[in-house]
Computed example of a mutant assay.
Amino acid sequence: MSSHKQKALFLEAKNGQFVVGEHDIPKPGSGQVLVKIHTAALNPVDYKIQQTGALIEKFPAVLGVDMAGVVEDVGEGVQDYVKGNKVFAHGNFTDDQASYQQYAVATTDFTAKIPPNLDFDRAATVPLGFDTASVGLYSDQLGAGLTPPWVEGGRDKYAGKSILIMGGSSSVGSYVIQLAKLSGFSHIITTANPAHQDELKLLGATEVIDRHLSGEKFTAALQKITQQPIKIAYDAIALPETQRAAMSAVAQGGKLVMTLQPAVKEEEGKGRSVTATFGHPYAEPNKIMCSQSWKVLGKWLQDGLIKPNNFEVLPNGLFAIPGGLQRMKDGKISGKKLVVHPQETA
């Protein structure tokens, strides 16, 4: 392999197979850094792209958006980063900015330095999960439109209020819990496997409902916790049954945010709004808001206000990704993120 080439995992075609091959090492442009990727995290969006071809225009394509590594080079106008900085970043759906490879360029607006209390593996679990949680809670267009905790008056603004989070032990759900805590919600109610209860309470959940409860049992468990109307629900799982359960809990005039397209209709909601969020910082409605949250994200991680996900490292570098995505697709991963080390690709 020449010094200008690297190993990358390609999705060969729409609905095609993943194969490891060679790819040019990109050069950082204005406002970008080149990152030698030590850890990349896997996300459900990647197998959904393989299934549907969504979000990708041309194939073969490199996927993956969660990365952590070391700055190798900086582009024009970059002042906050130098070669050798340890960083994590939210990649993009383009070959040069995707994370399933050994080197990628990252946009500095959605990059942060890894605080000394974190390693590459933990830092790589943050970007997509955190951005999907923050956009879903705080975006006016793609979320609930709450006041973010990184703006003046945003911290603890929702004291006395209740929020329901479906799927608290998912990556996105765990960040929704933590942001809800920063926003001051008094009742942070989540559904999860009871095995994750203690951990979710450490993140900020005040009550955990068994995710296997449905229909009247779910409603009864919720009413036992609070009689107060729930105006905000965030469904991090967004299967038809979790959407219906969340919708049944949302009060008149309330909002339901979800990570997939709605299976419930707003008219069923009788004055309740339904929004499918999209935690992609490069999407036009998200750029400004996400660049603001990324300015505080490193500090919040250092101070322990935001804690990364638990993770499992898969051996064999990029070769491990297809099997890891299959495990996620089969529903065999709970309460942790799968990560790989691209530099270990033999």
Rank of each mutant, 00 (worst) to 15 (best):
H280N: 10
V74E: 02
Q292T: 02
E199R: 09
A205K: 04
S291L: 03
I230P: 06
G269E: 02
K48T: 00
K270H: 12
V250W: 01
D46W: 06
H280Y: 07
D96C: 07
N43S: 13
L182E: 12
Q326R: 13
E216F: 13
I225V: 08
A98C: 08
G53F: 10
G271P: 00
K48Q: 06
L305R: 12
L42K: 07
V296E: 11
T219E: 13
P322L: 04
P28F: 12
K5Q: 14
D80L: 05
V74H: 03
A112P: 00
G31C: 06
V71S: 06
H212V: 09
G269A: 12
G84H: 00
K217F: 04
K265V: 01
A61S: 09
A221T: 12
Q32W: 02
K329F: 05
V78S: 07
F88N: 03
K270Q: 11
V257H: 00
G335V: 11
L203D: 03
T277R: 01
P148E: 13
W294E: 00
V339S: 14
Y158H: 09
H212A: 09
P281Q: 06
T111R: 01
D210V: 12
L239V: 05
H280R: 00
P315W: 14
Y100A: 03
K58I: 03
V151M: 02
D121I: 03
V126G: 01
T107E: 13
L203M: 15
I56E: 07
G91K: 05
P342S: 14
S248N: 13
W300Y: 14
P60A: 07
V71K: 05
K48D: 00
R122E: 12
P229W: 08
A106G: 05
N15S: 08
T125M: 11
N309S: 15
T132L: 04
L305D: 10
I230Q: 08
L239I: 03
L239A: 09
Q141P: 00
G269P: 06
Q50P: 04
G304N: 08
H341I: 05
G145H: 07
A159C: 04
V70A: 00
E284W: 11
T345F: 04
T111S: 04
K217P: 03
V78E: 06
R272K: 10
G21R: 15
N117E: 10
L297S: 03
P194W: 06
P115N: 14
R155G: 05
D73A: 11
D95Q: 09
D303Y: 08
A192V: 13
E266A: 15
T226H: 06
N310C: 02
S170K: 03
K36H: 12
F130A: 01
G324D: 10
E266Y: 00
L179T: 04
W150N: 01
Q141M: 05
G173F: 07
G31K: 06
E284H: 09
I225H: 01
I237V: 15
E207T: 13
P342D: 12
G254Y: 00
D210G: 11
R155F: 01
S170L: 04
F120V: 03
T190W: 05
S273K: 06
A61R: 07
K255A: 08
G143A: 02
T206S: 13
